[in-house]
Design a protein around this nucleic acid. Structure first.
Lengths: 208, 208
DNA sequence: CATACTTACTTAACGTTGTTAATTTAACAA
DNA sequence: TTGTTAAATTAACAACGTTAAGTAAGTATG
């Protein structure tokens, strides 16, 4: 039984209903394996209704990523309150990895899938926000460690340090996500790998 | 003008013709964006002919990866001759990164794309071969550094060390490949990031 | 030489996919 | 009542991966 003029709130509700259903399916079986018809069926609409809210499948994917980037930043927010900058940096790394490994398919969509470049302009998130921008959180912590003069003296570029730390943690997580069921390699325990990466990073970056 | 019984060599030739055409297209535009019909057209056959040589698109992808894994191992072989184990380890890291960054889409297929787990049994490559298995090459080098007693005393698990080093280099490369055109982050120079990762790794893993 | 069989390939076709166009249904406004 | 608009649907399209059926050229066998 169909239509009724809808309030803005009702529209938004349906929008997030679609997003949630789509994410659940994408996450479980991968973006390409999930059809628009299947997403629609899940929420009791026809496939074409989705196109009233999203231009196409790619736009739906981007909207999902947007909400997940926010979720990541939110999940890291608590850790930003730790007083000691080095401890805070470690906690942020652990938190990031925890997000990646408990939501591997969210993570895959966010950081491992090729999609059109994310433009800050058409994102609903605010760049350089302590609440919404995880990269800004990382940069803030790295900057604090730098100001506390805890990095080795040859390390001066905050962006470079932040991106290298990110790469280290991302490397462990993404390798785990895309390769851990590979039989070619005799994989060691993921938490041991993560722990060693953190230790190596700290030893390599901090003053003795 | 159709068929003639073909020798084994001719079959193999057509097989690699398909592989090369498919890789070129996959690499240029991504696996999902390329159709079987398009691959076939490129080499002057009908789409269904591909199925005489590969069970399906996934099998074709796997065959491509197989030849690329071999190419990676081959490109690293020279570096295995460097005498000093630590220098050899560094060179291997640089070589791996060079491969990843000069063949980003090969690399994506090999290490960043979800495909059915690679089973050593149905690969044409030989596991634990110094010529064909890049992971074995890495493990060999790490083992040599370990035997030379150059790692910090608390580091004893060769697999764990190897996988952490891999994760570090892979992190820099994969982040570069999937995120470097992202406007959200103010990316620093890729070779600086790679250099810092190597330095950090060495400082973190080796004895003082 | 004629028949049958095999090989290498093509064309036709199927079921699905993302997406668009046309249509229906229901609510509100005059 | 009669339009008008909004929200949804059904129908349809072109393209996809893949399968089935068909065809032409060569080989083997009588």
């Amino acid at each position: 039984m169909p239509p009724k003029p809808k309030t803005e709130a009702e529209k938004h509700q349906l929008r997030t209903l679609i997003i949630d259903a789509a994410r659940e399916l994408f996450v479980a079986r991968g973006v390409d394996a999930v059809t628009m018809r299947e997403i629609a069926k899940r929420i009791g609409y026809s496939a074409t209704s989705i196109y009233l809210h999203f231009a196409d499948k790619e736009a739906l994917l981007k909207a999902i990523c947007d909400t997940d980037f926010l979720a990541l930043a939110t999940s890291l927010k608590n850790m930003m309150q730790i007083a000691d900058p080095v401890e805070r940096m470690q906690a942020l790394g652990r938190g990031y990895a925890a997000f990646a490994l408990t939501h591997p398919n969210h993570y895959r969509l966010m950081f491992m899938t090729a999609h059109a470049p994310i433009n800050p302009d058409d994102s609903s998130l605010q760049q350089n926000s302590a609440e919404q921008d995880a990269y800004f959180q990382l940069k803030t912590v790295v900057s604090a460690v730098h100001i506390a003069d805890r990095f080795r003296p040859d390390l001066q570029d905050v962006d470079l340090i932040a991106q290298t730390i990110w790469a280290g943690v991302h490397g462990v997580c993404s390798l785990q996500i895309s390769m851990s069921c590979d039989k070619w390699v005799n994989w060691t325990d993921i938490s041991a790998r993560l722990q060693l990466m953190q230790t190596v990073m700290l030893r390599g970056l901090l003053r003795d």
